[in-house]
């Protein structure tokens, strides 16, 4: 057991080092910082003597208009109710998670096809620690990124007299677990595929399905219709990290802490189930060296 933990630690460290040497990470952080600056400045420019007037800044007006027409007025109001931070966080967080998950799915699949992972895990361990090391790398960078964003927002709020609401930090917590569940899907996809492109295709397709279902569930509708497609959609939502993430955000807004904890627990459960599934799938596919 200790040997396995040691191996996981070594591979995870190597993965972290690899990622740190990749320019994409730095470009993403720089992009996030620049966007945060523009978002805060735009928000301040939109503040009038009688409150927020989004029509004063084209970008925020566009965002608010799109939100209102697709998801209703309340969704737009909720997004900016406590300031610009939740909106900024959503915009800068998703590209980062997409980058991490794509790199995980592609790299794992690629290393499987080239036989690199066989070389790395040659020894007293099976493929599972190898997958786990990727998960640890993803947890490390997601936590680091959220921590950085929280520090950045707190500094921004101190300078501008805006508030990083306590509910924002709770939203960040559920976002972290949502991200880890999404990243686990990337690991599962790579365990199913035999090369990088297949792995990436499986992962992106599943995320696209979840994302479309998520956006669909938020949109304004004119009539409820129950048909096989809606039933399949409802069933698929049970496996979607976006579904529990949205539910946790609503719970935070309503101050319903029990529901919030249940949603976070559901996200942890999805991650665990996916990792266990990855473990068994890799065994079935006999990747053990």
């Amino acid at each position: 057991m200790n040997e396995k933990v040691r191996v996981i630690g070594i591979i995870a460290r190597t993965r972290i080092k690899e990622t740190l040497l990749n320019p994409a990470l730095y470009v993403l952080i720089t992009g996030a910082l620049v966007f945060t600056y523009y978002s805060l400045v735009d928000f301040i420019n939109a503040i009038d003597s009688d409150g927020l007037n989004l029509a004063k800044t084209p970008i925020l007006e566009l965002v608010s208009g799109l939100m209102t027409s697709f998801f209703g007025r309340t969704a737009s109001e909720n997004l900016f109710a406590h300031g610009p931070f939740l909106f900024t966080f959503i915009v800068i967080f998703f590209p980062f998670i997409l980058y991490l998950s794509i790199s995980t799915a592609f790299k794992l699949g690629n290393e499987k096809s080239t036989g690199a992972c066989q070389l790395v895990i040659f020894g007293p361990v099976n493929i599972t620690p190898y997958y786990l090391s990727f998960l640890i790398r993803d947890i490390f960078f997601t936590l680091g990124y959220i921590f950085l964003v929280c520090i950045l927002f707190t500094a921004g709020s101190l300078v501008t007299n805006m508030v990083v609401d306590p509910t924002f930090f709770l939203s960040a917590v559920s976002s972290f677990f949502m991200a880890i569940a999404l990243l686990s899907y990337g690991i599962l996809a790579s365990s199913l595929a035999s090369n990088g492109f297949t792995s990436l295709s499986i992962y992106l397709s599943s995320v696209a399905v979840f994302f479309v279902l998520y956006i669909g569930s938020l949109m304004t509708i004119s009539e409820y219709t129950i048909n096989p497609a809606t039933v399949i959609g409802l069933v698929l939502q049970v496996f979607s990290p976006f579904f529990y993430w949205q539910a946790s955000l609503t719970a935070v807004e309503h101050g319903n802490w029990l529901v919030f904890l249940l949603d976070v627990f559901a996200l942890v459960l999805i991650t665990s189930v996916l990792m266990v599934a990855t473990h068994f799938l890799s065994r079935i596919r006999s990747i053990k060296v």
């Binding site: 998801f71 209703g72 309340t74 969704a75 938020l218 304004t220 509708i221 004119s222 409820y224 949205q246």
Partner: peptide, 9 residues
């Protein structure tokens, strides 16, 4: 009209 079943007002 149209509305969001998951949202409140």
């Amino acid at each position: 009209g149209r509305g969001n079943p998951l949202s409140t007002k």
